[in-house]
Design a protein around this nucleic acid. Structure first.
Lengths: 333, 333
DNA sequence: GATTTATTTGAAAACGTTTTCAGTTTGCCG
DNA sequence: CGGCAAACTGAAAACGTTTTCAAATAAATC
């Protein structure tokens, strides 16, 4: 139907050189006489030749494409990471194939495999529950994989994160120090190591060093959505919580609005700290105090790490922890 | 280094059939005897064979990958569209290469070309300023392109949108009917046809039919960011505006918070209507009234349209307008 | 059972590059 | 100039599929 496309062969013929030479000039190989280079370049220009990346990928076994698996791009936390990833990806001449997994283990495995069949040069994975099956799939491939903003308790793969334990511990300590005896811990699925293992541990540690007994009535496991947050006000009140450490910004916004709508003043009657410092924290009233994470940077560093892995450079630190901070805004006293 | 990969040839040998036959069973071609099919399938299973999509792409000239060009995934408006796109893409067995353009025409052209060189089967483009140069690039390729949530005044390419003129006109009319004599129009870059041509036209029409003269002091051209919104309060007050029609949710949130922070009660002293109905409208207090757009659907329909184009099916309506709505929340009286 | 027709199969040529290896030129030196 | 190294260049073999076309086999018809 369309035999319009110009191939390297056409260029070679027209420039009266071999395909090899054309390939060399296209790839910036030094071993080509300036005169021939120019000749070829002119023909390329004239014919409007564009290399076919698929053929190139087949021949060179490099696609300059990396896969990105994300629970949901619609979530600001992940879109921020994704943006950081894409920026350094393009900086290194890669493109990203973006896939949404909905945190569904089956889908994760499925897209992982289609990404591999598409011969991506590497993968950055986001998603906090690394199931055994997924880990098996990870092991099956030699394609480099790095986790971004996602922890695997077994540290099978390189990763970029912050120190969730310390961050939560510090914030909960602050809450306690300000006089809150009953601090709730509102989180996403505890199955996810980031919640059930790390953040919860920080929470417990803070309680312990303050001599407060752990009460699992104060732990609320949710699905991480705004909507759910809005419905939590009553439950939180009924256990006499006066503050909450929340693991997701949208969830936290929901809780806060639920409180406000029910007439519970934030922060006077109820303090809230959230975890991701997305721009949502600033848009909401009162503005939410938050653990600050360099979201964009986590993505960017993860991608940078991946480029090294893809290049077979050796990396000294496989599990990077980026610095976190604590941003006091208006949802805490 | 790694000669681990199983090819179709290995399967053929092991199953004692030809590569053609293996290819047929992999592709679900009907013309293969059940017995051989099973034999091949067993070998595939045993060898853990996975087709190489790159080779497949070269041979078949189909990559089952589409390019998505978006100003910024971090913007909820676009991430919602992107999600719709990805969902129907995977439904039709495509993957998406996602690229951020920052609405920068040069970058748009650049990524467009790298997407084409990667032989994507189609492209969905988001970004509201279609420059002549970009249009030229669009014309250069036979790869189908559709615009999602993005208008081109010249209607060069198929697109999926809502009727921005009518939507804005209707909302501004409501504002006027409620007694607002001075309604501001706060928008992103007027160069973008969606603002400078369509929405502005709706605004003007509404004024006209209410017999109110158009006053360009009431038109505020911005960069569409939250931050800018927060800084607009004074300017809006100084032109005695009592309401604003805003073209972006984050921008609107900024304006509203700017107002609230300055002690101007919304909606009592100032009414605000926004345009994109992202989930932000619900998270902010007061909740923002908005034109509702089926964001996810716009993406989904655009992608569906693209599949048809890629399939050479003919489509009856090239420029789809999806229904919009008006959602009254708390930022209007 | 001989034909005819339909169903399955395989050989080999694409697809558009990169890359290896051997050959040609060129430049330099004595 | 002759000889040798260095700089360029080209032929052809990959890369791992799909696809075409003809051949082989099986099924159906009379």
């Amino acid at each position: 139907m369309d035999k319009q496309t110009i191939t390297i062969y056409d260029v070679a013929r027209e420039a009266d050189v071999s395909m090899a030479t054309v390939s060399r000039v296209v790839n910036g190989n030094a071993n080509v006489k300036p005169a021939t280079r120019k000749k070829v370049l002119d023909v390329i220009e004239k014919l409007d030749y564009r290399p076919n990346a698929v053929a190139r990928g087949l021949a060179s076994k490099k696609t300059t494409t990396v896969g990105v698996i994300v629970p949901d791009v619609t979530n600001m936390y992940f879109s921020s990471l994704a943006r950081g990833i894409d920026d350094v990806a393009t900086m290194y001449k890669y493109n990203i194939i973006l896939t949404n997994s909905d945190s569904n283990s089956e889908k994760e495995i499925k897209v992982l495999n289609t990404l591999l069949s598409k011969q991506v040069d590497g993968i950055v994975f986001m998603g906090n529950e690394i199931t055994d099956k997924l880990r098996e799939e990870f092991k099956r491939t030699k394609t480099p994989i790095v986790l971004a903003g996602s922890v695997d308790e077994q540290n099978l793969k390189p990763s970029v994160n912050i120190d969730y334990v310390a961050a939560v511990q510090e914030e909960v300590k602050n809450l306690i120090d300000r006089g809150n005896k009953r601090v709730a811990f509102v989180c996403g699925p505890l199955e996810q190591a980031i919640n059930g293992k790390f953040r919860l541990e920080g929470y417990k540690k803070a309680l312990k060093s303050a001599g407060i007994p752990y009460d699992d009535k104060l732990v609320f496991e949710t699905d991480d959505t705004y909507k759910t947050g809005t419905l939590l006000q009553l439950a939180l009140m009924s256990v006499n919580a006066t503050a909450a450490m929340v693991t997701d910004d949208e969830l936290a916004a929901g809780i806060m609005n639920g409180m406000s709508d029910a007439g519970v003043k934030v922060p006077d009657k109820f303090e809230i700290i959230t975890s991701n410092d997305t721009k949502l924290t600033e848009m909401v009233r009162p503005k939410m105090s938050s653990i600050t994470q360099p979201l964009y940077d986590i993505g960017a560093v993860a991608m940078r790490l991946l480029t090294k892995l893809m290049n077979n450079e050796d990396v000294n630190e496989k599990n990077v922890l980026l610095p976190y901070g604590l941003m006091k805004r208006e949802s805490t006293k």
